[in-house]
Design a protein around this nucleic acid. Sequence first.
DNA 1: TGTACATCAGTGAACGCGCGTTCACTGATGTAC
DNA 2: TGTACATCAGTGAACGCGCGTTCACTGATGTAC
Lengths: 232, 232
Amino acid sequence: MTQTTTRRKRASRGSGEQLHAEIVAATKGLLARSANSDAVSIRAVADAVGVTPPSIYLHFADKDALIEAVVSDVFAELDAAMVAAGEAVEHPLEKLRAYGLAYVRFAVEHPEHYRVATMERCPIEGQPGQLDHVLADAAFVHFMATVRGCMDAGIFAQGDPLPITLQLWSAAHGIASLMIAKPFLPWGDIDAVADPVLCAAALGRATADLLGGKPHPQQIIDWLAAQRASAG
Amino acid sequence: MTQTTTRRKRASRGSGEQLHAEIVAATKGLLARSANSDAVSIRAVADAVGVTPPSIYLHFADKDALIEAVVSDVFAELDAAMVAAGEAVEHPLEKLRAYGLAYVRFAVEHPEHYRVATMERCPIEGQPGQLDHVLADAAFVHFMATVRGCMDAGIFAQGDPLPITLQLWSAAHGIASLMIAKPFLPWGDIDAVADPVLCAAALGRATADLLGGKPHPQQIIDWLAAQRASAG
DNA sequence: TGTACATCAGTGAACGCGCGTTCACTGATGTAC
DNA sequence: TGTACATCAGTGAACGCGCGTTCACTGATGTAC
C-alpha cells in the first residue's frame, strides 16, 4: 500500500493526544472495509493518518490496545444512537422498541464495527473485569433500565430485569448479526424486518409471563386453541 | 510449531481421498482452538496430519477451498444433530423446539466451528449461488419444512414460511452467538436459557399472527391489558 | 530582543517471524510383459 | 516367477510478502536566561 495521505503536520508541544483520536478514527475507517481486525495493520493505520508506524506506539501500547480503544468508541457511538432514538419516546415498551430498532440499524449500517465490537474479542481466559464491563456499558444500562420500566408499567412480570434484558438483547443481536452475515437473503427494509422480530420477542416474553413464565409447547398449543375459540 | 504427529504412512495407490478427509478433520480440530480461520495455517494443518504443507495442495486448490470444505462438514454435522433431536418428536411445534435446542447446543459446544460457518464468510461481492446454497442447506430445509408443518397445524398463520423461518432462525442464532461471544455472562444451563427464548419467539410470532401479523407496541399494551382484565 | 538548550512528537531502518504457495524431485506402489 | 517401467502420493527447499515491534535518531517547538 502506498502513502494515501500527505504527511500530516507535526503536532505542537502539549497536543500529542490529537493524534490519538486521529488514529482511532483512521482505524475505524479501515476496519469498515476489512473482514476482521487482523486484516487491519498498524502500517495501514499509520499510512492513513499520514504518519510512520512507530508513531502509533507513542499513543497505544500495542495493536491490542488500539483495537480496544476502537471497540470502546464503537460502543459509545452505538449507545448514542440508541439514546437519540429513544429520546422523544414516553412509554417504556415503545422506548424498548426504539432502542432495538436503533441497535439493529447501527449494526447493519456499520457491520464490521459491530462485528469487531460484539463478536470478535473472545476471551479464552476469564479475566474478572469483563462481566462488570458489559453490565456497566452505557447501552446495556439504558436497555436494562427500560426493561425495568416495562415491569413497572405491567408489561413484564416483576423480577430481576437481567434475564429479560439478555433475552431481548439476543433477539436484536440475532436479527442484526444474521442480516450482516447473510446479506444476500431477501431481507428488505431494515426496520420492516427488525420491527416484527423485536415486537414478537417482547410480546412473546410478555405472553409467556401471562402463562406463568416458562411455557412448554403443549401449553402454547392449548392456549392458542383457547384464544382462537374465544375469538370465535 | 514442531511436528506433533509421527509421519503418516503413504496412502496406497487409488486411495488418495483418504487424506482429504483427514485434512478436513485436522483443520476442524485446530479451528476449535483458534480465534478464526486466519489463525489456522496450512502448515499447522499439514503438521497435525503428519504430512508436509505442499501435500495439502494435492487435495485442495487453496486455503479457501479447504475452509469451505470444513464449513460444509460443519453444516452437515449441525443438520445431523438437529435431525437426531427431532426424530422422535411428533407435533411440529415440539419439533421446532427440539431443532432449536439442538441448534443452540451445537453452537455452544462447537463455538469456533459455529462462528466460522455462520459468521466469518462475509462475501463482499454477491456471487449468485449463495442464496440458493443457504436455502438448499439441509438444516435450513428441515427447519422451514417444520415451520410449514406448524402452519398446517394452526400454530402460525398460513403463508410463505420463509419470513417465519428467518425470524425463528434469528432467535436461535441470537441466543447462541451471544452465549458464545459473552461466555462470562450468567447464562446457566444451555437448555434452561435457550428454551424460554425459543418458546417465546414461537409464541410471540403466533400471538402476533393472532393480532393481525405486525403488532405495534400500543396494540400489545392494549392486548395485554385486555388479557389481564379477562383473566380477572 | 536574542540565543542556548531541554523537550518530545515523530522518523528511518531494521529485526525476526510465519505465512500461502511453487517447483523440481523422489521413491513406493502396482502393472505389463 | 521375475523384471522393467509408468504412475502419482508425498517431499524438501525455496520464493516473496507483510506483519508487529524495536531502537537509535532528528529536528521543530517552546522556554530560560
